[in-house]
Design a protein around this nucleic acid. Structure first.
Lengths: 342, 342
DNA sequence: CGGGTGAAGTCATACGTAGTACTCGACGCA
DNA sequence: TGCGTCGAGTACTACGTATGACTTCACCCG
C-alpha cells in the first residue's frame, strides 16, 4: 500500500470548482469545443497545484489496456540483450508504455510452470527477441513482434541482415586468401544461426573453399573446446568464423593453447560487436549489429501493431568491422589488401 | 486493446451457478467456514474450464496496489546489471510481482524530463542499484531498497562487502610481494567506489607500500589511457588494481602497448568477475560479486518492506578468485605462494 | 416572442474485483 | 413455540477514470 494516498481527479475537480468529468476531459485533451479555455486553464492549474497524477490502475481498467509490453529475451546476462532492452524501453517510454522484461529461465523449456511466470494478464503486447515463434504459443491472441527471427513466420518481425553480415565476413576472409575455414557455430536451433550457417556455406562453396564445423554452447569454455576440435583436425583451418563474439573469445583461447598467433597463424571473426570485441587482444574483426536500434525499431513496430496498423518489416543492416584478428593466411597465395567496408 | 475479451469473475459465477462474490471469495482463498467445500470445488472447476484469469487492472484498482516494482539501474549494457535484474525478477515473480526496469539515461542527470520517464504512477516500490540516495528524491514516499550503496543512509540497503573484497585483493598482492600499487579507479562518485578506494589505501599503507591513482570512465578505452598514465610515471607500479573488470581489460591493453607481460612484468586485478574476466588472456584475478543474488536478496528485502516489515540488512560477501593475471613482481623480494581463498 | 442552435458543462454509468454487511434457512435449546 | 446461533451464500458498494447522453443557458433569427 502506497504511503500517501494521492489526489484523484475528484480532488482536482473540487479544487477547480468543476466536475470530475470536466477534469477528465481537460486532462485527456478531448475538450476542444466543449470546455472553455479559461476553465481548462484553471483545471490544469489546480492539477498542477495538487500534483495530480492519474491513477494508472483506474485508467487501465476503464480503457481495457495496460500500457505495458512484455519483452522476452533469452537472457540479460549475455552482453547482447541489455542494449536491446534499453532501446525498447526508450521508445516505449516515449509513448507512455512500460516494459516488463521476461528472461527465459535456464531450467525450463518455456515460460510455463517456471518461477518466472510471465505476467501475462497485464500486458498489451509482446516483443520477443531471438526466439522461435513457438515460444509465443501460450500467448496466442496477444499482439507480438519478433526480433531477429524467421521473417517467414506468422508474426511480424524486425531483424538484422544476418545473412548479409555473414556474407561480408566470408567475403572478407576469402578476399584475404583463406580457403580452409572453420565454423564455430552456436549449438542453438534458432533462425538467426541457421541463416548465418547457410550464408557462410554459400560463400565458401562459391570460392571453392572447404568448410568444417563444430557446434558449442554460447559460452567461452565450450567455445574453446569446439575451436580446439576444429584446429586439431587434419587440414587445419586458417580462419575460424564464430557465430558470436563470446565464441570468438573461446577461439582465441584454443589458438593460444596451440601456440598459434592471432592473426598471423589464424584469423578469427566474431559476430555482434559487443563490448568484449574491443577488450580482446587483438581486437576482434566482427559484424556490428545495432542491438539498441533493434529494440527501438521492434518496439515501434509493436506500437504500430497495437494501434491497429500493420507494421512494415524492418531489416537493420549489420556492418563489417575489420580489426586486428584477421590477416592473410600463412603462406598466402591470395590477395592481401584489407577492406574496410562491406 | 486486447484481441479476445477474457472471461471475468462474473462469467465464472454464471458458469458455476453462484454469485460473483462467491467466486471472488473462493479464488481469493478467504472462504474457510463461509463457503462449502463442494461449492468451492465447483467454482474452481468452472474457473479452470473457462480459463479465467483475474483482471490485474481491476485488482490493482480495488486493492490500491500494482504488484509492480521499479528496478533502477545505471545501465543494462555493462555486464554487471543483467544478472542483478535476473535475480530480482526471479524473486519478484515468485511473489506475483512484476519488475519494470528503468535505465538511467546517458544524457540526463536524473530521471526527470528524460525520454525514459519512469512510470512512477504504477509502482509499489523501488529497487535502486548502485546509485546515490538523492536519485530517489522525486520518488519520496515510495518504499525503496538500495543495492550496493551507502548503508548509513536513510534507506534500507542490501550490499556487498566491497571493502572486504578490496582488502582481500590488496592482501593478495601484498602477499605476493607488491609494494608499488597503482589504482585505476572508476571516475564515478558512488559509495561503492569510495569504499573500494579507502580499503585499498588502508591495506597498502599498512604494508608500507605506495599507492598511485588515476581515474577514468568505466570503459575500455578510457581505462587504457588511465592505466598508461600510471605506468608512465617514475616509480612504475608493479601491480594495477582496477575498480572493475572492464577497467582491467583496459589495463591489459596499456600493458601490452608498453611491451609489459601480464603477469610476469605487471599484475592486474579486476572487480566483479563478469563474463569478461575469463575471456581475457590471461584470465583475470578478481573479486566475484554475486550479482544475481544481490538482485534476489534486494527484492526480498523490498517485498518485506512492502509487507510492512523492517528488512534486516543483508551483506553479501565477495570472494577473491585468483587466476592468471597476478604473480610476484619482477625481482620480487616478497613471498611467492599463491593463496586460493580470501 | 417562440423555437432553434451552439457552447459549456454535468450526470450517470461501466470497467472487474474484493470484501463488508446483509439475508435466509435450519437447527438447538429452553 | 420462540429465540438465538450458526452455516452458507448473496447484494451491494467502492476503487478512479473516461465518455456518451443529457442539461442549461444565452443568443439569434424569422
Amino acid at each position: 500500500m502506497p504511503a500517501t494516498s494521492r489526489p484523484t481527479s475528484k480532488d482536482v475537480a473540487h479544487e477547480a470548482g468543476v466536475s470530475q468529468s470536466t477534469v477528465s476531459l481537460v486532462l485527456g485533451g478531448k475538450w476542444s469545443g466543449r470546455i472553455s479555455p479559461a476553465t481548462a486553464a484553471s483545471v490544469r492549474e489546480a492539477a498542477e497545484r495538487l500534483g495530480y497524477r492519474p491513477n494508472q490502475a483506474a485508467r487501465n481498467l476503464r480503457l481495457g489496456t495496460t500500457r505495458t509490453v512484455l519483452l522476452m529475451v533469452p537472457t540479460l546476462t549475455a552482453p547482447f540483450f541489455g542494449p536491446v532492452h534499453t532501446g525498447a524501453v526508450r521508445v516505449a517510454a516515449r509513448h507512455g508504455f512500460g516494459v516488463v522484461a521476461y528472461v527465459w529461465p535456464d531450467d525450463a523449456a518455456g515460460p510455463a510452470g517456471s518461477p518466472f511466470a510471465a505476467p501475462r494478464e497485464a500486458i498489451d503486447g509482446i516483443l520477443a527477441s531471438s526466439m522461435e515463434v513457438e515460444a509465443l504459443a501460450e500467448f496466442r491472441g496477444t499482439p507480438a513482434v519478433m526480433l531477429d527471427s524467421d521473417p517467414s513466420g506468422p508474426v511480424p518481425t524486425v531483424g538484422f541482415g544476418v545473412a548479409e553480415g555473414m556474407r561480408s565476413i566470408a567475403a572478407h576472409l576469402v578476399g584475404l586468401g583463406h580457403r580452409r575455414i572453420g565454423h564455430v557455430a552456436a549449438a542453438v536451433d534458432q533462425w538467426t544461426f541457421r541463416a548465418r550457417a547457410e550464408a557462410l556455406a554459400a560463400v565458401t562453396a562459391r570460392a571453392g573453399g572447404t568448410l568444417t564445423r563444430a557446434a558449442c554452447a554460447i559460452e567461452v569454455g565450450a567455445a574453446r573446446d569446439a575451436a580446439a576440435r576444429l584446429l586439431a583436425g587434419p587440414d587445419r583451418p586458417t580462419a575460424l568464423v564464430c557465430d558470436d563474439d563470446l565464441i570468438a573469445a573461446g577461439a582465441y583461447k584454443a589458438a593460444r593453447a596451440l601456440g598459434l598467433d592471432v592473426p598471423s597463424d589464424l584469423s578469427v571473426t566474431g559476430f555482434d560487436d559487443v563490448l568484449l570485441a574491443t577488450a580482446l587482444e587483438p581486437e576482434l574483426t566482427t559484424v556490428r549489429l545495432p542491438a539498441e536500434e533493434l529494440g527501438a525499431r521492434g518496439m515501434e513496430a509493436l506500437l504500430e501493431l497495437l494501434d491497429g496498423g500493420r507494421p512494415a518489416r524492418r531489416v537493420l543492416r549489420g556492418r563489417l568491422i575489420v580489426r586486428g584478428s584477421t590477416a592473410p593466411p600463412p603462406r598466402a597465395e591470395g590477395r592481401v589488401e584489407r577492406e574496410a567496408g562491406v
